[in-house]
Design a protein around this nucleic acid. Structure first.
Lengths: 227, 227
DNA sequence: TAGATTGTTAATCGATTAACAATC
DNA sequence: TAGATTGTTAATCGATTAACAATC
């Protein structure tokens, strides 16, 4: 048993598809909010700006979810994508680094709305350790000292962490997290983290993203000049 | 003239390469800070976690920059990548939406350190319009009313904007920006923006990024169970 | 010259797209 | 049955990698 169930088709959803599933789920939430009980691949694809062929291909990795001639049931898609992504449960996260960015993320409603709960905040600076910060759910979270990071993560079975420290301490924080069993890390520190294989890192390098935009502005400018 | 100069090889740097150039530049900054005047493809590739073959291929799109037998001059690479990306000048940016995230980005030093200057901040809420916010360079920036967005952008020739509004107003803000001539947009609003072709959008959907991490956690958990 | 490392080629791999048979 | 839309196949496109000749 346990094999040809409705569960995630054993093995492989391609990475490019995994990256789009959250976007489909987000768009489906909007459709659901509008009371739409069915969507076609065309409609959903338009909402996310992919081609309908790509959407159908992506969904086909999760199993045959649609009905030829009519489309997909919103509810079904939400359920299957949620369970594939594992967001049909709540994930506790910790944020390490309580500068402006860390604190902004601590109160970011987008996380709590989409399956994440801020479990704890950490920092090194003695003058802010102990301060209470309001989380989006109305609770107060006390900033903990970073020396408690490992034990907290272990005790509370934290699997996902967000690093918002300066680049200079990011690697050290990362090592601590990995040693304590955190294998999924989102980092905003502008440096490449060295991690053992099996650990997943999503790097959000905000300035690099802006530099990708300047490349295109630059290119447009050059084209105008060379014409 | 103007053709076979050292300039960006007319036309095409592939998108995947463009996405890595900022990372190379960042790593080169670190090498330079350490006083390293030369790097090999192996060293730089290691620092960014790509293969050396990929690094050399990427750099080859910018022209033959290295010296067989010894490597690349740090200085030269920095100069060429900077000029390809267009970050050898300062880019003024505006941030629209002064919630926690917008304000955190307003004071984010990572932008100012890497070629961006916060020119102005915008919001709709009457109770915060007019407030002064400290920018990373020590200057004070006054939050402007969003009704002044179009004229400000036009008058000051702003080409890059960051949207940190709620999803519900992001499209409207985006339309205003595009109408005023902003063709490069970074958005943190969790929704797909519709823009005319020629406009570049980088979507930073933070919750979606976390959901990509949960997929892998979920997958690991399933593997354990099925063993 | 010998040793080292680039720049480039050709092979591979993965992702996207177009098209249409299957089927509601 | 006729109309519609999925799921899948095969073709295309782009990105990555291995390998090595070129050359410092």
């Amino acid at each position: 048993m346990s094999d040809s169930r409705n569960s995630t088709r054993a093995g492989g959803v391609p990475p490019a598809t995994v990256g789009r599933l959250p976007l489909y789920l987000r768009a489906l939430g909007d459709f659901k909010a509008q009371g739409k009980q069915e969507v076609t691949s065309e409609e959903l694809a338009d909402a996310v700006k992919v081609t309908s062929a790509q959407l159908r291909k992506d969904l086909s990795y999760l199993g045959g979810l649609g009905t030829r001639g009519s489309g997909y049931k919103t509810e079904d898609l939400v359920a299957t994508i949620s369970s594939t992504l594992g967001v049909n449960r709540e994930w506790p996260i910790v944020i390490v680094g309580c500068g402006n960015l860390g604190l902004a993320l601590a109160s970011y409603e987008g996380f709590s709305k989409r399956g994440f709960r801020l479990a704890a905040l950490f920092d090194t600076a003695p003058d802010i350790v102990g301060i209470k910060v309001p989380a989006p759910d109305g609770e107060q979270i006390t900033i903990k000292d970073i020396s408690d990071l490992s034990s907290y993560v272990r005790m509370n079975n934290i699997q996902i962490a967000v690093i918002t420290t300066p680049a200079s301490s990011a690697q050290q924080v990362c090592d601590q997290l990995v040693n304590a069993g955190v294998y999924s890390i989102m980092t905003f520190a502008p440096c490449t983290l060295k991690v053992p294989s099996g650990v997943d890192v999503r790097q959000m390098d905000l300035a690099s993203e802006l530099q990708i935009l300047t490349f295109h502005e630059q290119t447009k400018a050059n084209e105008v000049i060379s014409i």
